[in-house]
Nucleic acid binder design. Structure first.
Lengths: 173, 173
DNA sequence: ACTGGTATTGATACTCAATACCGGGATTAT
DNA sequence: ATAATCCCGGTATTGAGTATCAATACCAGT
């Protein structure tokens, strides 16, 4: 984590931005967890250390972290963005369970190179890519299959309840 | 298009929902274009035929169209969802230009099967997947490369202006 | 140290997509 | 016809994200 904050410091300096305590504290908080989080969750965590930190500053610093490419923005849900810190991680993608809402990560060699190749064939220079798989996780698959009888137009009644997956403090890996 | 609206009608009947003129008119409008659209854009198009149609109904019918799997919801942008009708199309994915905002489609055989396989290996039953590639389109690549000098921390100043890509009537393919 | 200028911060107000609610109207079954 | 639903559309509400702006913190040069 020392390492990640160091990178962020370097990024700020290179951009001629000030390395303030508030910014570093937000960055530390981000790097102290490997969970996905919303801006407001992050704000809450930060405020446990320094209750005076404003929501705006969290949003702004999060923007800087994304620009520095130390943090990635995930558009997995509808009305809300999730973020995750990506330094020191293997690049990965996400599977979202339609029933319990759990988000699971996975990575695969071929899935890293292929999209870029395909893009290049079309004259498109890829800088990043994201793969999102919807379906049913291990635990929910049997249940979901039980409900779905044959397979005609029966794609109903799923995807409503959302599981609550952790919400307290940020946790180490 | 006759075909697609027929499928929607069947879906409604199977669900015990009424096949109302309003719903069919919204569906027709959706199937009359292959563009991406926001719910409000759709509402505007629909109101050109029947100015009394309410925004709420458009949202609701759009929800039904998604459930029937005739229309897909894309979470490409932040604050706003895009939709596109997918029946009779080859399944495809999207490349989003960071400079001009243009959205380009592509498809690839391997990219269809691979994600599902990988998911299955993890005990996850995939029902759908989406691949999103960010980068620079053919037109913007040279410009972007020109701006980006070497390649250290220089990932700045990009991704701000958004191109306006069509806005009038829905158009045939 | 002091001063002037700039960047940063955080409270408040605002925007806008999406949702909830509710009363009136249409459609079907009895 | 009448009752019971379902459907529709207007309005109000929610909530994430953004803009504004005055106050504050920081820095460089004197």
């Amino acid at each position: 984590m020392q390492y990640e904050t160091g990178l962020f410091r370097k990024f700020l300096e290179k951009r001629g931005l000030r390395v303030t305590q508030t910014r570093m504290q937000i960055a530390e908080t981000v790097f102290s967890t490997h969970k996905h989080f919303t801006p407001d969750e992050l704000a809450e965590w930060v405020r446990k250390k320094d209750s005076s930190t404003g929501r705006m500053t969290v949003y702004r610093t999060l923007g800087l972290l994304v620009e520095s490419e130390l943090v990635e923005e995930l558009t997995l849900r509808k009305g809300q963005n999730l973020y995750e810190h990506v330094v020191g991680h293997k690049h990965h993608h996400h599977m979202i369970c339609l029933r319990c809402g759990r988000i699971q990560e996975f990575s695969n060699e071929a899935l890293e190179s292929l999209p870029r190749q395909v893009a290049r064939q079309k004259g498109f220079t890829a800088t990043s890519h994201a793969i999102k798989i919807h379906g049913f996780c291990k635990a929910c698959s049997p249940i979901a299959n039980g409900h779905r009888g044959g397979g005609e137009g029966e794609t109903v009644g799923v995807a409503s309840s959302r599981a609550q997956v952790g919400s307290g403090e940020p946790s180490e890996t």
